[in-house]
């Protein structure tokens, strides 16, 4: 549709809000990233050098990479699986609510919930954490789930993230799945396709753009993820992530320069994914 300048009427409210609450503060963040902790001394690229060279930051980068792969794979994968399978059962609403439930829980409460799962007590005492109770019942020794680095504790934290966010992927993907016309699925089945073929050749192509959206959203959340790490370990035992470092530098250490530099790095890290997204949108518009 081409209709002169009318599009600005539709965009104006959004642009005003985005400008005031996100774009202007981001410009300010970029400026502050070249200043010292109290924003009064110009320090050039020093904050960036520190962000890319200090040991805690390097560990955080590594962990974010782990989050990126494992968290995204599981949230999107299980979200898709559930969206497709739940369409076939009559008790869909109940299961959906169960998977969605963690999204409705504040992260402080999530910290308490997982305390009941990961808690460690010595072998001599009754276990009050579920996982260690299972381990002990199977004849093992209790494990410090949040202590043992580098795999156990990071994966334990990622599991909490997956538990929370799969509900998001499921809801969005399910909404899109419901958009597939029933006739399309039936037609494929009548043509003799089995369920797996229907999934591959009808469902996936139809959901492609929504899958891309959900995956992008999860990647963005991985870059921003901090609350789970913050309440459970605050980055101890090599579990730190970039956004948690930023939060600490800003809110506790009052180092606005370094915190701003880390925020800018987050913003830069998302650019490749933006390019992919826009290419996909172009392709979508070319065929519709």
């Amino acid at each position: 549709m081409n209709m002169g300048r009318v599009h600005w009427l539709y965009l104006a409210p959004a642009l005003l809000m985005l400008g005031l609450f996100l774009i202007y503060p981001t410009a300010e963040t970029v400026r502050l990233s070249f200043y010292g902790p109290r924003s009064d001394v110009f320090v050039g690229f020093q904050n960036y050098v520190q962000a890319f060279t200090s040991q805690p930051m390097l560990i955080a980068f590594r962990n974010n990479l782990l989050w990126l792969v494992v968290f995204t794979l599981f949230t999107v994968g299980m979200g898709l699986l559930l969206a497709v399978l739940l369409d076939r059962v009559r008790y869909e609403t109940v299961i959906k609510s169960v998977i969605f439930l963690p999204m409705a829980i504040s992260y402080v409460a999530a910290g308490v919930i997982w305390r009941f799962v990961y808690t460690f007590r010595p072998a001599v005492a009754p276990q009050i954490g579920l996982l260690n109770a299972i381990v002990v019942a199977l004849g093992g020794n209790p494990i410090g789930w949040l202590i043992e680095r580098p795999w156990v504790n990071n994966l334990a934290l990622i599991a909490v993230g997956v538990w929370v966010w799969t509900g998001f992927c499921m809801v969005i993907l399910s909404a899109a799945y419901k958009g597939i016309p029933k006739e399309m699925l039936e037609a494929a089945r009548i043509d003799g396709a089995n369920e797996w073929q229907v999934f591959l050749h009808v469902t996936i192509p139809f959901l492609k753009s929504t899958l891309a959206v959900v995956t992008t959203t999860m990647i963005v959340f991985v870059l921003k993820v901090f609350d789970i790490v913050y309440v459970m370990t605050n980055g101890a035992y090599d579990t730190d992530v970039i956004a948690n470092r930023m939060y600490n530098e800003m809110f506790y250490f009052y180092n606005y320069g370094l915190a701003s530099a880390i925020a800018v790095i987050l913003f830069l890290a998302i650019i490749p994914f933006l390019v992919i997204n826009v290419r996909r949108f172009r392709a979508q518009e070319a065929v519709r």
Binding site: T119, F120, R121, P122, A125, P142, I143, G144, I147
Partner: peptide, 11 residues
């Protein structure tokens, strides 16, 4: 220490 070092760290 009760629970050893893992106990001290996790309790």
């Amino acid at each position: 220490v009760y629970g050893g070092t893992t106990g001290a760290l996790s309790i």
